[in-house]
């Protein structure tokens, strides 16, 4: 069997490699090239040098959207993971109806971001109207917190499943040994459970950090960046740059922003991966 794999590995790798090249590597390289161009259609581009990048780095709206995305990512990552982990702890204690709870918490994840965005827009606007506060379209503070609530609602169930899987894979003799040694619940949590679920934490942090930066459809549906780009994340800003104005240079500006965005997300998630990986322990 192993011999066969050694012999035939290219056949097994080929489909995925081909898909990856067609679907990722080629478009990425083309995108990189286009970020130095002016264009209307992608096969008819003219070279524009680094002007696109100069514009992207001096655009205030882009800078604002970076800080908006960064703030959003920090808050949403913390909230989602803390709550998801707490629920996972609660649902690994053999309470009655555990399976029902797990399914129900997971359900919001099955609804698409655009639909969720519109549903929450109606809900939050109703609440704001009752409180006689300005509605979402003119209220950047609630726009931000609305997005946080929406993302928590959508993501907590998903992260919870990953944490449950991690918690269940801790060998029960570890926990038993800790109890015999007289550890209390808090000590078991911090000294045994958390170190052993570090791989899950790595995955969940990675997912929520990248989701936070890549936030697009929820952002578009809930606030569309209103009022005046105040609640606009990076991805939505790129989209607006690309389609909001007339002229070939704007496509180039949008493309340059997209490349910066891509590099930024990769760098931040690599740092995060390295930081959490180093805390993982061997079972």
């Amino acid at each position: 069997m192993e011999k066969a794999i050694k012999k035939y590995w290219p056949i097994f790798v080929l489909p995925t490699l081909a898909a990856f090249s067609i679907g990722f590597i080629y478009p990425f390289l083309q995108g990189l090239y286009l970020s130095f161009c002016k264009f209307i259609t992608i096969d008819n581009a003219t070279w524009n040098g680094i002007k696109n990048y100069l514009y992207a780095f001096t655009d205030e709206a882009f800078l604002h959207s970076f800080f908006f995305s960064a703030g959003f990512t920090i808050v949403s990552t913390l909230l989602i993971n803390v709550i998801a982990f707490a629920i996972a702890l609660a649902l690994t204690r053999n309470i009655k109806g555990t399976n029902l709870f797990r399914s129900v918490y997971f359900l919001p994840n099955l609804i698409g971001g655009i639909v969720l965005g519109y549903i929450w827009q109606i809900l939050i606007n109703c609440a704001l109207a009752l409180l006689e506060k300005p509605l979402l379209a003119v209220n950047p503070t609630f726009g931000f917190w609305g997005l946080i609530i929406l993302m928590c609602w959508q993501q907590i169930g998903y992260m919870m499943i990953i944490y449950i899987a991690g918690l269940q894979s801790i060998p029960s003799d570890y926990l038993e040994a800790a109890r015999i040694d007289g550890a209390n619940e808090w000590q078991i949590l911090t000294k045994v459970k958390i170190p052993n679920v570090m791989p899950s934490i790595t995955i969940c942090l990675f997912l929520s950090v990248t989701n936070g930066f890549k936030l697009f459809d929820q952002n578009l549906a809930l606030t569309a960046g209103e009022p005046g780009h105040m609640t606009e994340g990076l991805a939505l800003n790129i989209y607006d740059t690309f389609y909001g104005r007339v002229g070939p240079q704007w496509k180039g500006y949008g493309q340059a922003k997209a490349v910066i965005f891509c590099v930024l997300v990769i760098v931040i998630s690599l740092i995060q991966l390295r930081a959490t990986r180093s805390k993982e322990v061997q079972q």
Binding site: Q121, I122, N125, A129, P134, L135, L136, A137, V138
Partner: peptide
């Protein structure tokens, strides 16, 4: 049909 403040939605 409604108050101006509600028009945004």
């Amino acid at each position: 049909t409604c108050a101006p403040a509600e028009l945004s939605a």
